[in-house]
Design a protein around this nucleic acid. Structure first.
Length: 262
DNA sequence: ATGACGGAACTATTCCGA
């Protein structure tokens, strides 16, 4: 079965339901993983997505913050969730596709401003979250699995607009990059976007604060698609839809796509 | 300074994003 999957930090699924519908209509991924829904699950506008042909959803939500959801044209089986670092947040949900592939949708904590866990509790929570992700995948190696989401880390020098300037900025510090690498190693995860696009600058997020985000182009690649080695070779056609960042009243993230012949 | 915007919440100002 061939299918296309996308991940998008939507920054409020209720405010931007029309943008979600537009992406579904124009790009028609089989599966769309959303982060920062900022909504209880029961208030997600499912009827809008069902009308577009996306009749299946698994999600975890809370009022105002965080929240993850998987919308699908294909039937989904709820495959549970994890509360790493015991934050009590809705930051992970998993679903099984009819072909047996498990999709993990993550929203890793941002980590606050100061990259020092002694001064900033949130930075410590981010590192702890990643450590528990690592331990979980180490305890049971994932198979036939895809991991997507806003991981809030841009690991490579060419995943940020200026590597040296961002070394002390949360999302690109060496300690975060090392923690993310350990998560990746624990599950033998293959970075599908970089498998398909091995060279060159790649961003999926541009700050709202720039006067002209496109002209400044000071982006970071925070949103990722990974897959286990047993299906990584079936992946192709990775792309980041930068134009979506320029839509009316946009999210500050662009959606990331990949297709799989599994 | 990268750079001051944008969303949600017990509507007005505060927390949060990264």
């Amino acid at each position: 079965m061939a299918f296309t999957l996308a991940t998008w930090n939507i920054n409020s699924v209720r405010l931007r339901k029309a943008l979600v519908a537009r992406l579904l209509a124009e790009e028609a991924p089989d599966v769309l993983c959303l982060q920062e829904c900022k909504s209880p699950v029961e208030k997600i506008p499912l009827e809008v997505f069902a009308e577009a042909g996306y009749r299946y959803m698994v999600g975890r939500g809370q009022k105002g913050y965080n929240g993850v959801a998987i919308l699908s044209k294909l039937p989904l089986e709820d495959a549970g969730d994890q509360d790493f670092a015991q934050l009590g947040h809705a930051r992970h949900v998993a679903a099984r596709l009819p072909n047996g592939v498990t999709v993990h949708n993550f929203y890793v904590p941002a980590g606050g401003d100061e990259p020092d866990r002694e001064k900033n509790v949130k930075f410590g929570q981010k590192l702890d979250y990643l450590t528990e992700m690592r331990d979980w995948f180490h305890a049971s190696k994932p198979e036939k699995a895809i991991l997507v989401g806003d991981l809030n880390i841009a690991p490579r020098e060419d995943d940020v607009w200026d590597h040296k300037k961002l070394l002390k900025i949360v999302s690109h510090t060496p300690v975060e990059v090392e923690h993310l690498a350990q998560v990746q190693d624990a599950g033998d995860w293959v970075d599908i976007t970089r498998k398909d696009v091995p060279e060159g600058l790649l961003y999926s997020w541009w700050s709202y604060r720039a006067k002209d985000w496109a002209a400044a182009d000071k982006g970071r690649r925070l949103d990722h698609i990974w897959a286990t080695p047993d299906i990584a070779n079936a992946a192709h056609s990775s792309r980041i839809l930068k134009a979506v960042r320029g839509w009316e009243q946009p999210s500050d993230h662009a959606p990331v796509f990949a297709s799989f012949d599994v």
